[in-house]
């Protein structure tokens, strides 16, 4: 079967999984359904011939699931107030988003056809093995992120460092004793 058929099937599966994740009442089931969406994108990356990205997406998805399950403490903390439920806002949101979808259908005709990318810059990397000759590494994606565009990877490390710093600062404990102190950065 051609790749496009597999992708359509997986995308429909992911859409159903995401709607289930948002509407279900039990929060543990919702977190597991998000795992379906994340692993579905990892399978889609494999169909689109990107194994590097599939490994990274799979591992970071598992890590995000672990952190999210840690945030879920007991089922009774998540019972919402019935009075503040607003059916009008839900209806208006669905109508507006459906309108956005219908109005933007024309725009998808202007995109390049699926399977025919415009490879202007990447032609230099792919043709005749230029990237393999200049950097001598067999993995083209690694040679792009660590040799041709190493400055972007420096920015990425900085953003990850700042986000982890923020997380550790928020989860700081103020106690009197020195024994149970969270890590200070």
């Amino acid at each position: 079967m051609p790749v496009e058929t597999w992708l359509i099937f997986t995308l429909i599966f992911m859409i159903i999984g995401s709607i289930v994740a948002l509407e279900i009442k039990n929060l543990l089931s919702a977190i597991i359904s998000i795992g379906v969406v994340g692993l579905g994108t990892s399978v889609c990356f494999l169909f689109l011939q990107a194994p590097d990205l599939a490994i990274v997406q799979f591992l970071f998805e598992i890590f995000a699931l672990i952190i999210l399950i840690r945030a879920y403490l007991k089922a009774e903390y998540h019972e919402m107030d019935k009075k503040s439920e607003n059916k009008l806002v839900t209806f208006i949101a669905i109508v507006v988003l459906a309108g956005v979808l219908v109005l933007s259908l024309d725009m998808f005709g202007a995109l390049p056809e699926f399977g025919n990318p415009i490879m202007e810059t990447a032609n230099h990397y792919v043709e005749k093995g230029n990237a393999a000759k200049e950097t001598n590494s067999a993995n083209l994606v690694a040679s792009i992120i660590l040799d041709y565009r190493a400055y972007d990877t420096l920015g990425e490390i900085t953003v990850l460092f700042t986000a982890i710093l923020g997380t550790l600062t928020i989860l700081r404990i103020k106690t009197g004793s020195q024994k149970e102190e969270s890590d200070e950065e």
């Binding site: 890590f63 672990i66 952190i67 840690r70 950097t135 001598n136 590494s137 690694a142 040679s143 660590l146 040799d147 190493a150 990877t153 490390i157 990850l160 460092f161 982890i164 997380t167 550790l168 989860l171 969270s182 890590d183």
Partner: peptide, 26 residues
């Protein structure tokens, strides 16, 4: 491939230490 393995090791150490500290503080 020059500095590519060296940079890989540096990035690997940083990501490992950072992510483990998030889990430890949780």
């Amino acid at each position: 491939a020059g500095t590519i393995p060296v940079l890989n090791i540096i990035i690997g150490l940083k990501v490992c230490a950072g992510l483990f500290f998030v889990l430890w503080s949780l």
